[in-house]
Write a protein that binds this DNA or RNA. Structure first.
Lengths: 191, 191
DNA sequence: ACCCCCATGTAAGGGGTTACATGATTTA
DNA sequence: TAAATCATGTAACCCCTTACATGGGGGT
């Protein structure tokens, strides 16, 4: 019973709705799958080989356009079982790392006007991300994915969290920009 | 002009309020600094040596309790300058990875009752985290760290974001638990 | 001629985690 | 006597990122 890495489970997750080739998996995992997981091509191919060796996936092979075969991967019964077991396991606590928060912690060592621009730029970044999320959310809603028995409800639900979590972050960035403006005003009262 | 890693800047951030020994840095970075950055002891000591070689920090050495010297590190003028420059740089986009969201994406492959328990456990985890944040927030408030010119305003501000971002996550977990209950009810209408 | 898309794979290097190692002093 | 604390350092391993490599087919 070989252990499976988080990346391995990510691939099983990506395959849970139907077979995909390695190349298709690479495409999907460039844009984050479930809006919160990415992987590189150079990770994916070796991991597919490992999952296959462990009997969690299997593939059909046909002649590809290049020098190598095109393989279409799908979950085996063992793979479906391993996935179902993992899904309900409480996740091991991961270390959060957020460079913006790290900068904020040491903010006293920075120029307030520079930090004001920093937070405004952050707010814009998150605003653009929110716009993209809203677009995809609307698309899934139009396909009635808000029904928990809909096959895409999972993807819809990840967007729900993104839509709930992003606006507070944007408000915080704007609030930080104001605080920095206030600081700059105090330090140089006459300009 | 050697490049400095994110970890290197994290150490400069940790040192921005005054000198610390390697051991003290290890203690602080076990619990996340700024509530969003951690590092292991085995990373910290080599990184301190690199920062020192690059002239960004320097240290006094005295006899320690064990076989090695006790070193107290502080920022140099060059270190303070490097930190101030980095603080206002827009952060390189990092890959988010969230196992909970990954599981949610593939939720259709799981048992609804198992997932309901999963989300309830998640909600409790975040609730406990929120309680701890609120305690520290109250502590910093009692020391008037909500003033942007207060030396601890940065730490206070990181807590502000945590306090704004965590409740939506808890509400989402509870909502997911309800959705899973609804799904279970539909699949087994008579129990 | 050159670049992009399909399609799969390997190599090198950085960053992070877990565990090992030393050894004196304090606490149970 | 056993452990925890102080204090610094090393080794092995895994994961991830960037880049290299092959080679046919289609577009400009």
């Amino acid at each position: 019973m070989a252990t499976v890495s988080a990346l391995g489970y990510a691939l099983l997750c990506a395959l849970h709705r139907g077979p995909l080739t390695g190349y298709e998996l690479v495409q999907r995992m460039r844009k984050p799958i479930g809006y919160y997981w990415t992987a590189q091509q150079s990770q994916i191919y070796p991991e597919l080989a490992r999952l296959s060796a462990n009997g969690l996936i299997e593939h059909d092979a046909e002649a590809g356009p290049g020098p190598r075969q095109r393989k279409t991967h799908r979950l085996t019964a063992a793979g479906r079982e391993a996935l179902a077991g993992w899904l309900v396991e409480p996740p091991a606590p991961r270390a959060f790392r957020d460079e913006t928060l790290l900068r904020t912690y040491a903010l006293a060592a920075a120029d307030p006007e520079g930090m004001r621009e920093f937070y405004l730029a952050e707010a814009e970044t998150y605003q653009r991300r929110l716009d993209a999320f809203q677009e995809q959310h609307a698309d899934l809603l139009s396909r009635h994915a808000d029904d928990p028995s809909h096959p895409q409800f999972g993807a819809y639900a990840t967007l729900e969290l993104a839509l709930a979590g992003t606006p507070p972050r944007i408000r915080w960035c704007r609030w930080m920009a104001e605080q920095m403006a206030e600081l700059a005003r105090r330090r140089e009262p006459s300009g």
